[in-house]
Amino acid sequence: MADISYTPTFRHVAWEDRKDRVEAAGPNGFNVRFNAIAGDLGQLSTAVTDIGTAIDATNAVPPPQPQRLSFTPSLRPTGLLSGGVWSYDRNGVAHANSLAMTGVANLTLPHGLRLTSVRVVGDMQRGSAHSVSGTVSLARTPIRLVVPAPAPEPLAVSDDFGSVGPFDLQIPVSAPRALIDTSVFRYVLTATFMTIIFGRMSIEAVHLTFASPS
């Protein structure tokens, strides 16, 4: 914030009885003196306005800042591709090294906020396998019990890991499904890894970014 200051310029020189004559014009007349006072009052008014603007700025509500939830998913094997169990090292990094693995993690998300993106950080190695592949997705499913169970609604999906090696995926969230409603939906993160032999995949961290609902 810029410095706000006011420096008066008017200096009154006292009149002397029976020496100074009262006059309108001239360097010692009323016009010059009153115009100087008016100029000082104008500067003072500007300074007061600047002070008010500065006070209003300090009282203004700052714009909402994005929030982030960071975690390593606790993946549970599920489905036909649950040929192995995700393991975790001392740093909490999730590892998959079976031929075909899929795991699901139930997430507790803040109700009423809006998801904007999913970031997944990890590593994928081919080893002696001819090919490896992986998929990471965030989805929601209705809480109500219906038969048959409805298919999960994808919010963010990525299988674009590029070449093998470290990856840092930035996955946008589908805008129509971005608003978190925990009264209607539960939210799950799914990771799938497939290889021929001796390939592996690890997930170091998942970052979910939220914004205000508006």
Rank of each mutant, 00 (worst) to 15 (best):
residue 3 D to S: 02
residue 123 D to R: 14
residue 102 T to C: 07
residue 66 P to F: 11
residue 28 N to A: 15
residue 144 R to T: 15
residue 173 V to F: 01
residue 26 G to F: 15
residue 16 E to R: 15
residue 2 A to F: 08
residue 60 A to N: 09
residue 199 G to F: 02
residue 116 T to M: 10
residue 60 A to C: 06
residue 88 Y to E: 04
residue 203 I to E: 00
residue 165 G to R: 06
residue 145 L to P: 08
residue 141 T to F: 07
residue 60 A to G: 09
residue 195 T to Y: 02
residue 41 L to M: 13
residue 28 N to P: 12
residue 103 G to V: 04
residue 134 G to L: 09
residue 74 S to E: 05
residue 84 G to P: 10
residue 195 T to M: 05
residue 114 R to C: 10
residue 144 R to G: 08
residue 25 A to E: 12
residue 44 L to A: 11
residue 199 G to V: 03
residue 59 N to P: 00
residue 102 T to M: 13
residue 113 L to M: 11
residue 190 T to M: 05
residue 149 A to L: 10
residue 108 T to V: 14
residue 95 H to S: 07
residue 81 L to W: 06
residue 161 F to I: 09
residue 115 L to N: 02
residue 135 T to P: 00
residue 18 R to I: 09
residue 188 V to A: 08
residue 91 N to G: 14
residue 113 L to E: 13
residue 110 P to A: 00
residue 118 V to G: 00
residue 3 D to I: 08
residue 147 V to N: 09
residue 100 A to K: 10
residue 17 D to A: 13
residue 113 L to I: 11
residue 79 G to F: 01
residue 103 G to Y: 03
residue 76 R to T: 11
residue 138 L to F: 00
residue 17 D to K: 09
residue 152 P to A: 01
residue 32 V to E: 14
residue 56 D to V: 03
residue 56 D to R: 05
residue 97 N to D: 14
residue 94 A to R: 01
residue 96 A to K: 03
residue 118 V to S: 03
residue 113 L to H: 07
residue 207 H to L: 08
residue 24 A to L: 12
residue 18 R to H: 14
residue 171 I to V: 07
residue 173 V to G: 00
residue 45 S to I: 10
residue 140 R to F: 01
residue 83 G to T: 06
residue 52 G to A: 14
residue 177 R to G: 07
residue 26 G to A: 14
residue 22 V to E: 15
residue 19 K to W: 13
residue 1 M to Q: 15
residue 194 M to Y: 08
residue 24 A to T: 15
residue 151 A to W: 12
residue 108 T to L: 04
residue 89 D to S: 03
residue 27 P to G: 14
residue 121 V to E: 04
residue 146 V to H: 03
residue 99 L to D: 07
residue 214 S to M: 15
residue 151 A to H: 11
residue 199 G to N: 01
residue 124 M to D: 07
residue 118 V to R: 01
residue 210 F to S: 05
residue 26 G to Q: 15
residue 114 R to Y: 09
residue 126 R to F: 04
residue 82 S to V: 01
residue 124 M to N: 08
residue 9 T to E: 13
residue 49 T to V: 02
residue 35 N to R: 13
residue 182 T to H: 11
residue 139 A to I: 04
residue 7 T to I: 14
residue 123 D to F: 11
residue 67 Q to L: 03
residue 5 S to L: 14
residue 42 G to E: 11
residue 41 L to R: 08
residue 174 S to R: 07
residue 170 Q to G: 09
residue 147 V to F: 03
